[in-house]
Amino acid sequence: MSAPAPTRTARPRKPPPGPSAILGVVSIVGITIFAVTWINFSLAPLYTNLTGGWVVIREALQPDWGYLRWWCPADDAGCNPTNRIRLWKALLETFNIAVLASMAGCVLAMGMSLLASSVSAPKPVVRVVKVFLSAVRSLPDIAYALIFVAAMSPGPLPGVLALTIFNMGIVAKLTSESIDAVNPGPIEAADAAGATRWQRARTAIVPQVLPNYLSYSLYVFELNIRASAVIGFVGAGGIGTIINLEFNRGNYDRLSAIVIVIFVVVVALDLTSQTLRKRLV
């Protein structure tokens, strides 16, 4: 530079990196190393066993479109009409399970969420309900499906019940967080007017969280379409039943045809639901 700065002042020393940054990096690396050794994670099969996998993948890359037909071709005498329509019935069942479970779960969730926020419920109740809800949320959907299938018999009803509980956990948590964040003004006004707890919830809280609540409900509906593809694996009805069947038979060409159908259905329903959600919030 052409002119030096007028006076050269002392340079402050660079502070050492914070303990949390170091701790963060160390624990990420540490946990990863631990996890890799614990489950013997190894990418070696990518080289050694690619041929084994490749057979399956190649089959999957040629979907059996004929499997998607819901009618019998005229020249195929051995074709069984009930078998043909089974896939589509299962898909419809998936949709039905998702609708029923999200509606039932969301209705339960509204009540639970009012009990889970200190805005609308007394402190001790809130504490108990919160613990209950996080226990409910800590179990995956498949665990509920296993329980209800074992308790009842395989069929769509255990699926509906399993997803109902699963949905209730998610929607109740999200909605109770929305309730925590509502504008306190209307609540004070309701209190000042001598409203009971119930009146207060109805007039001052529910209307404020309703758009969010409906949006969460649509969100779990989206989740349920995917989830009911999974829970059918353990006998809880829906398209998963068919996936399980063809998986056990090793019909990968059929599986990939089913997957493509699921993909299309999921994308279509997601788009519909997201359009609705955008309108709500």
């Binding site: 994670f41 066993n49 690619l50 084994g52 399956v56 999957a60 997957v259």
Partner: peptide, 25 residues
């Protein structure tokens, strides 16, 4: 978006299980 629309189970049964076998990997 494509990946998001496919349940994780599908990746497992169509791609990963054939390659890696019945393992946590």
């Amino acid at each position: 978006n494509g990946i998001r629309a496919i349940p994780d189970l599908v990746f497992a049964i169509l791609v990963m299980l054939p390659i890696f076998g019945l393992t946590p990997t």
